[in-house]
């Protein structure tokens, strides 16, 4: 897991323009760009000062280790899934990858080669009560004939995708607008939620009703003030009330050589 994380942040920093100064099996050293420094290092005064005085900006260098440093002299941060730093990086990565417009580069059998428009939407479902579970699904919708594909990211992963279309390719026009495409995916999401087992929600609701009943009986028995009753009721509902949240992680318009998948 630590290795995967190391690879992950290597890719994150590299793709965002930082200089990888050193990288081994268990450590990595990165010279930040000004933008990354401003985003991650939280030192606005430094940047304000440098700009005011016209000094040469010196972005910081970060070092990460995948194992907690036994050698205290090692300067650097421990790269671990529980650290605030990593979550800051996850958050940053999420913000940098929200919307994309990409074209597949491939070796076409004949030129000029058509590229078909696909709307890609990655969705996170959260099932929340006093417990919680998330489920991530990746959808792709072909915007000409309307084929809806699951596990879209898996289909995309082997492809070479670039921001600029290759000379020998040309994009086909969509018949389905992005907005209505999104609506179709939303309907699919709705279907997923409807079909999803809801024993967890029923269990939570049952528990909630039991506790509310106990509270109610008690409050009646001792003639508790309404505001006390309401407060406790609120606490109970906050804890058990089941809900499903459907979030879009990211989305994009992808022009692919495949008409259908």
């Amino acid at each position: 897991m630590a290795d995967e994380l190391l690879q992950y942040i290597h890719r994150y920093f590299e793709t965002n323009g930082a200089l990888i100064q050193h990288c081994s099996n268990n450590s990595i050293q990165i010279k930040l760009t000004e933008a990354l420094d401003r985003e991650l290092m939280n030192r606005p005064f430094y940047w304000h000062y440098v700009k005011k005085t016209g000094g040469t900006p010196e972005p910081m260098t970060l070092t990460f280790f995948t194992e907690q440093a036994e050698d205290q002299a090692k300067k650097g941060e421990w790269l671990h899934v529980g650290t605030p730093r990593l979550h800051q990086i996850f958050e940053s990565a999420r913000n940098k990858g929200i919307w994309s417009l990409l074209y597949e580069h491939h070796e076409p059998k004949q030129t000029p080669a058509p590229l078909y428009p696909w709307l890609v939407v990655n969705v996170k479902y959260s099932f929340v009560s006093h417990q919680r579970k998330d489920k991530i699904l990746s959808y792709g919708l072909q915007l000409i004939h309307g084929q809806l594909v699951h596990h879209m990211m898996d289909h995309l992963r082997p492809l070479q995708l670039e921001p600029i279309i290759a000379d020998h390719s040309f994009p086909m026009a969509s018949l389905i607008q992005v907005e209505s495409g999104l609506l179709r995916i939303k309907n699919e999401a709705q279907r997923f939620v409807d079909d999803h087992p809801d024993d967890w929600a029923e269990k939570a609701e049952k528990k909630m009703l039991q506790e509310l009943a106990l509270l109610h009986t008690y409050s009646q028995a001792v003639s508790a003030p309404t505001e006390d009753y309401e407060k406790e009721k609120n606490d109970i509902q906050n804890r058990y009330q089941p809900s499903v949240h459907v979030d879009i992680i990211n989305s994009g318009l992808f022009y692919l050589s495949h008409s259908s998948l």
Binding site: G97, S100, N250
Partner: peptide
């Protein structure tokens, strides 16, 4: 901003983590 394919994947993976 439009993101690159790598950035798009990194965002998706961050949510998976």
């Amino acid at each position: 901003q439009l993101s690159s394919w790598e950035q798009f994947q990194l965002a998706y993976e961050a949510e998976q983590w």
